[in-house]
Design a protein around this nucleic acid. Sequence first.
DNA 1: ATAGGGTTAG
Length: 379
Amino acid sequence: MTERNCVSYTTMIMGLVQKGFWSEGIWVFRDMRWFGVGPNEVTMVNVISAYLHCGGIKVDKMLHGLVLKIGVTGFVHVCTNLLHLYCFRGCLKDASVLFNEMPEKNVVSWNVMLNGYTKAGLVDLGKEVFEQIVDKDVVSWGTIIDGYLQAARLNDAVKIYREMLYTGLRPNDIMIVDFLSTCGQVMSNFEGKQFHGVAVKLGFDLLDFIQATIIHFYAACGAVDLAHLQFEIGNKDHVACWNALIAGLVRNRKINEARDLFDHMPARDVFSWSSMISGYSQSEQPDLALGLFHEMLASGVKPNEITMVSVVSSIASLGTLKEGRWAHDYICKSSIPLNDNLSATLIDMSEYFPDNFMGLNTKLISLSSLSWPMFGLTD
DNA sequence: ATAGGGTTAG
């Protein structure tokens, strides 16, 4: 660095953040602070953005304090980014306080607040925010629609969608993905087919991620032939399309066809391996599941908590204590996060080995985020 | 100069 001033630091931070080098951007920011160079509003926008993507240490309050200290609360970009940071961390209380105090709000600020509520599952609160937006754009509509879809309220989402059409706005590719994905999940054949039609009319079915979602939708509704057809006419360079069809075949109990496709893939990611392993695990072929899991490790793809559910479940049905110990160890050592499903599967496995897994149950229950209904206490 | 929705695995 030639000169340590605000502009040169800010330019450097901005360059790094735009290229996705978040932690490097933060490093430069800390250097800037160390040398006592004062940031401006552009610095703050980029630094907040870097912390947003970096996870790690929670410095939200420090950034907020700094924003107040250097007096840039009047810049709507700065406050909107800060709002985004609070929402992303799940601090909706802090977010709404900031939102109400913001001297200026534009449609992006409103959309960030709206997204904060819907992503937290508070879609009805989100709807209240949505209704107050005077200049709703396609992102505002898409965000509230996705909120209803995530809550599996397909009819409410379609109702809002029609209101949007009436205002003259047209859906974008992301909205179509949201609808088709939910139609697959709740097996709404009728609505899904119509959104497929919308996608074709708007030319979105040329996009690879839409193609993968269409395959997923048809397979989830049991229309394997239509899923196959979309795969055949689509872009086979996109690994998600292969994954969607493999998962669809597995779901429809066509495990050998799935394996054939899996063997002919140009590249396999964690989705491909997990789908195939879960296919064997669910079709009572735990030995094949574990064999494939070891091939996965050898190929260098790192398993995650979803892969490990199938692996642990397969080990439980084989009753091989040594493998069970190894898998439990592997999960701890690789810091694979325990979700409800994986905790339950580990507890289930431990019951096959009562003597050797003494104490594991209580440890897991206290460590995990297991919801009480899983224990049947509410029924 | 700087900002906001998303897909495929259980």
